[in-house]
Computed example of a mutant assay.
Amino acid sequence: MFFTFVVMLGGNPIGDRFGFRYWNNPGSFQEYYKTGDLGRWLGFLACLIQASFTIAGPDYVSMAAGETVNPRRELPRAYNGVFYRLTTFFVLGTLCIGILVPYDDPTLKNAFENDLPGAAASPYVVAMDRLKISVLPHIVNAMVLGAAFSAGNSYVYCASRSLYGLALDGKAPRVFTKCTKSGVPIYCVGIVLVIALLAFLQVSNSASIVLQWFVNLVTASQLINFAVVSFTYTRFRKACMAQGISRESLPYRSRGQPYVAYIATVCTAVMAFVGGYEVFLPGNWDIPTFFFSYTMIGVFPVLYFGWKIIHRTKVRKPEEVDLVTGLAEVEEYTRNYVHVPSKNPFGRFLDFVFG
């Protein structure tokens, strides 16, 4: 963002003070499939569908609760940190991209059309090349590599812990409960790493199509997951109200509830249905794309109702929901926990900002 601010005001080797030029020529919205307002809306929708793949992340924070020293104190800080980071890097980062590069840049279009690897499709690298900036593109490449490693590390952790939790609940083979002496679910990590090898499909143009199918499948799964999480919160809130548990007693309280949860439930559910809408446009019908975009929408109710029927479970009323099992132990641990302030200045700054 600092880079964008500097170069847009002329701080670049060619002295081009371009400002918001590309918002006027060729424009801030590209037409997609159709012309006019409908085409611009479809272009925005296409970007929104791609962005929905990144919806996973905030919910991953809660997965670390079982391995956090003092979750009732640390997790609220983490939630606040995630919110501000997403707002800063995703929203403002998108704004910067629109400022730096026009959507019809030939280098950028070629990178996407030919599935060029690495940071070749990065708008920042394209902008640096346009402005004759050297060295920085290599730094961006290194940052992209670091970000990919960080994301991979996060996904391996979350996926392996999810599989481990399913195994403990009897919803996955018991072999996945096997842990090392240090507590690492070794078989869970192993199977996740094997699945991660699918990423090598990207090295081939033809195989990258298969990878895109998996991306569509995962995106739909994440959207459904987020919709379920949001809906579950609304039921949790009703259970608290029915059992006389004050919201003020909770260690973390987000703003705008329950309306934000309702909005999130509806929006994510709608996005799951429109994620593969392009196959319904004239001349775009593709059976594999259709199935990989909408399979999870059909699988989800089958799994849900199948579990209900086979195990004869029922939907509990708000006053019947168990909100107290294990709570006494957590509260006792929290009361006896002694917080040691950070000696690092940066750590103290984070304590001040995020509580």
Rank of each mutant, 00 (worst) to 15 (best):
P251F: 15
V210F: 12
A220K: 01
Q257E: 11
S154N: 09
A199H: 11
F231W: 15
N141K: 07
K132P: 00
Q222G: 11
Y155W: 06
V125Y: 08
Y155S: 10
S134G: 14
E248M: 05
S246W: 03
A151K: 11
M241D: 12
L217Q: 02
M143Y: 11
A148Y: 02
S160T: 10
L198K: 01
I133D: 02
A159L: 07
P123E: 03
V260T: 14
T180M: 12
A151G: 14
P251M: 13
Y155C: 07
L197Y: 01
V140G: 06
H138G: 05
M241T: 13
K181H: 06
M128H: 10
K181Q: 11
A147N: 09
V175L: 15
Y157E: 03
A220C: 15
A261Y: 02
S208I: 09
G256D: 07
N153R: 00
G256S: 09
Y187S: 01
W213S: 02
S150I: 06
Q212A: 09
K132F: 06
V144P: 06
I245P: 04
A227R: 02
Q243R: 14
S246A: 15
S204N: 13
L145V: 14
A199I: 13
V126T: 14
Q257Y: 14
L131F: 15
Q257I: 07
L166R: 03
G256T: 09
S206E: 12
V144W: 07
K181F: 04
K178I: 04
C188E: 00
C179Y: 01
L168W: 09
S254G: 15
S150G: 13
I195R: 07
T232K: 02
R174V: 08
M143P: 01
C188Y: 04
C158R: 00
A151H: 01
D129Q: 15
E248W: 06
V192A: 08
R247C: 11
L168A: 10
L223N: 03
F149A: 14
L163F: 04
Y187A: 04
V192I: 03
A207V: 09
I245E: 06
A167V: 01
S182T: 14
K178D: 00
Y124M: 14
Q257D: 05
A242C: 08
N225E: 00
L198D: 00
R161M: 07
S249C: 12
E248Y: 10
F231V: 01
T234R: 05
V156L: 13
S134M: 06
A199L: 10
L223V: 09
A151L: 11
N153F: 10
I186Y: 10
N141T: 13
V203H: 05
L201V: 08
R235F: 06
Q212W: 05
G190A: 12
F236E: 05
V144E: 05
K171A: 07
Y259C: 11
L131S: 04
P123F: 08
A172T: 07
A227I: 00
T234M: 07
C188F: 01
I245M: 13
L223C: 07
V140R: 06
Q243W: 06
A196F: 04
D169F: 11
G170C: 05
R253G: 04
R161H: 09
P251C: 15
C179R: 00
A227H: 03
I191H: 00
S249R: 09
R174S: 10
A220D: 11
T219Q: 09
A227N: 06
M241S: 13
S150D: 12
A207W: 14
G256E: 08
A261F: 02
S150M: 10
L223M: 14
T232N: 12
S204D: 14
